[in-house]
C-alpha cells in the first residue's frame, strides 16, 4: 500500500529540527525501516515528516573516558563493523548479525530502534544489558534516561514528540569480561522470539561480576538481577541450576510468532547459553 500525504522537512541543524517538530502532527524519520512499513500500511499517518538524516554529529562512535558514545544515526551495519565496538563491546557486533538483513542493517539506526522499542529488538536489549544511558535532546536542553525509565511498553517509550534521541552512552566493561548474545527466531533476520545476552567477569574460577538480560520475555527488555546476584561468587557449573527457574515471575507475551508458554520454555535455555558462552569467552581472555 501507499502512505498518506505528508509535508517533508529536511532540517540541517538541530534548531531547525526542533522548529520543524513544533507541529501537532510531526514525526521523525531516521532509517525508516520500522516507520515506513507502518506508513505504507497507514497504521501511522503523520502530517509532517522530519527527516533527521542531515543533522550533523549524530553518526559517530567515540570513546569518552570510560564510556562509548554511539550517535543515534549510526546504522546497524556501521556499529557491527566499527573497531571500537569490536574491541570493547563485541556483544554489539554479535547481536547486529541477528538484526534483519543486509539492506535493512545498512539503513536502520540505533536511535530508531530504541524509540521503536520492539520488545524483541536487539538494541533495547543491549542497552539494558550494558547499563546504557540514553541521551535525549529537547527544546529545553539535554536529558539522560536509563533503559528502565525509557522503555514503558511494546512500542512505547518516555520520549516526547518534540524530543530527539541523539546518542547512547555505554560504559566500557573491565578488561577480560566475556560477553555473549543469543536468540531464537523463526528465520534468519526475523525478530527474535526470545533473545538473551550476558556479560561475565571471572576471578580465580568463580564468577565475580555478571549481567543477564532478556528480550521477548515481557513488554520491555528485562535484567535478571536476582539471577545475577545468585551467581556472583559461584563457579560456572552453577549456571544450569540457577537459570532453571529464571522464567518465574516473567510474563512473556503471546503473539502470532509464539505462545507465552513457548517463550517461557525458551527463557532458561537461552539464559544458560548466553551465560555459558560469556564464561567461555571470559576464560579465553584471561
Amino acid at each position: 500500500m501507499k502512505p498518506s500525504s505528508f509535508e517533508y522537512c529536511l532540517p540541517k541543524t538541530i534548531e531547525e529540527a526542533f522548529a520543524a517538530l513544533d507541529h501537532d502532527d510531526a514525526k521523525i524519520i531516521a532509517g525508516g525501516q520500522s516507520l515506513v512499513p507502518m506508513m505504507n500500511f497507514r497504521l501511522v499517518q503523520p502530517g509532517r515528516l522530519v527527516d533527521i538524516n542531515s543533522l550533523p554529529g549524530l553518526g559517530e562512535i567515540v570513546l569518552d573516558g570510560g564510556t562509548m558514545r554511539i550517535g543515534s544515526l549510526v546504522r546497524h551495519a556501521e556499529a557491527a563493523r566499527h573497531d571500537l565496538v569490536r574491541n570493547h563491546l563485541p556483544v554489539i557486533a554479535e547481536a547486529m548479525a541477528h538484526v534483519a538483513h543486509v539492506a535493512i542493517r545498512n539503513r536502520g539506526t540505533i536511535g530508531g530502534s530504541l524509540v521503536h522499542a520492539d520488545p524483541s529488538a536487539e538494541w533495547p536489549l543491549l542497552v539494558t544489558l550494558l547499563d546504557g544511558q540514553i541521551e535525549i535532546a529537547g527544546p529545553e536542553g539535554l536529558r539522560h534516561a536509563a533503559p528502565q525509565e525509557f522503555f514503558v511498553a511494546p512500542l512505547v517509550t518516555t520520549i516526547e514528540d518534540d524530543e530527539i534521541l541523539v546518542a547512547v552512552r555505554l560504559p566500557i566493561l573491565s578488561p577480560g569480561t566475556g560477553m555473549a548474545f543469543t536468540e531464537i527466531a523463526q528465520r534468519a533476520g526475523d525478530f527474535a522470539v526470545v533473545a538473551a545476552a550476558a556479560t561475565v567477569l571471572m576471578d580465580r574460577g568463580v564468577i565475580s561480576d555478571v549481567r543477564l538480560a532478556l528480550g521477548g520475555a515481557g513488554d520491555v527488555p528485562v535484567r535478571l538481577f536476582e539471577v545475577e546476584a545468585a551467581l556472583a561468587g559461584l563457579r560456572p557449573d552453577a549456571i544450569d541450576a540457577i537459570t532453571r527457574g529464571c522464567a518465574d515471575g516473567l510474563e512473556p507475551n503471546e503473539d502470532m510468532h509464539a505462545t507465552a508458554e513457548y517463550r517461557r520454555s525458551l527463557i532458561p535455555v537461552l539464559a544458560r547459553r548466553a551465560l555459558e558462552a560469556a564464561v567461555q569467552r571470559a576464560g579465553a581472555m584471561r
Binding site: M1, K2, G32, Q33, V36, P37, N40, F41, A77, A100, H101, V102, A103, I104, N106, R107
Partner: peptide, 22 residues
C-alpha cells in the same frame, strides 16, 4: 512494500537499501 521481500533492492549512496522504505 514492507521491507520483507527484497525485490525492490537498490544501491543508495553506495550500499544496498530497500527502495520501498525510502
Amino acid at each position: 512494500e514492507q521491507g520483507v521481500c527484497g525485490a525492490c533492492t537498490i544501491r543508495f549512496n553506495g550500499v544496498v537499501a530497500r527502495s520501498c522504505l525510502l
